[in-house]
């Protein structure tokens, strides 16, 4: 494993993939990343929307037949009003799924659900996979350890609701900062007082 920086060659052949670029038939990383064998694991990176991504967003504008959704990036999400169960207001927070991306980079959303109350925080999208964890393990223990409702968007927005919101934010911040390190699941479970997916009693 080594850390590679923008402009470092990672392959001596051209492979087009996210967070890289090709020049003179070689592949270079475009972001700060870890390179393990031939796998590039971005340490910092933006969200490149894909159909099926689950996102969290905030209603930015109500244009009568469509809602424009702030998705923490340069491109807005669009929700068609008639497919939304109950009307939304500007400022409402929703989770939804990416249905398609049009040629203007507008992100068409569907399967939306309004998230009532709570707080919206934002982390770098490259940290999201670690916040969810393999088979949802990290997210599950976050929810169990804090008793919060948490909805995580691939776009880097996270919605949290519950009494332990500060603990949840602290844990999420720690995961984001240490996303690239080993043993993190255990450190977070220690922090939250969770063992093997079960809450331990403090004595």
């Amino acid at each position: 494993m080594k850390i590679v920086l923008p402009g470092d060659e990672i392959l001596d052949r051209p492979i087009h993939m996210e967070n890289t670029f090709v020049e003179n038939n070689k592949t270079y990383t475009a972001v700060l990343a870890m390179l393990h064998d031939d796998k590039l694991i971005p340490l910092e990176g933006l969200w490149y929307p894909k159909v099926g991504d689950k996102v969290v967003g905030r209603v930015e504008e109500d244009k009568f037949s469509i809602y424009e959704i702030d998705l923490n990036g340069p491109y807005s999400g669009l929700l068609i009003s008639k497919f939304v169960k109950s009307p939304l207001l500007v400022g409402d927070i929703i989770e939804a799924t990416v249905k398609e991306i049009d040629r203007y980079n507008t992100i068409i959303l569907y399967k939306s659900r309004k998230l009532y109350g709570g707080k919206l925080i934002s982390v770098k999208p490259s940290k999201i996979p670690r916040i969810i964890g393999r088979n949802n393990t990290m997210l599950k223990q976050l929810i169990e350890g804090t008793k919060c409702n948490i909805s995580v968007g691939a776009n880097g927005y996270i919605w949290i609701k519950g009494n332990n919101i500060h603990l949840a934010i602290k844990a999420i911040t720690k995961i984001a900062k240490e996303a690239h390190t080993g043993g993190l699941t255990n450190r977070i479970s220690d922090m939250l007082g969770v063992k093997n997916g079960e809450t331990t009693t403090n004595s």
Binding site: I3, L5, L32, H180, G183
Partner: peptide, 21 residues
Amino acid sequence: QREAIKKPYEDLINKYGAKYE
């Protein structure tokens, strides 16, 4: 420049090891 960019990440890797996923 390169050392400054890498440092915070390397410090944590040195402490906890790296996670490759």
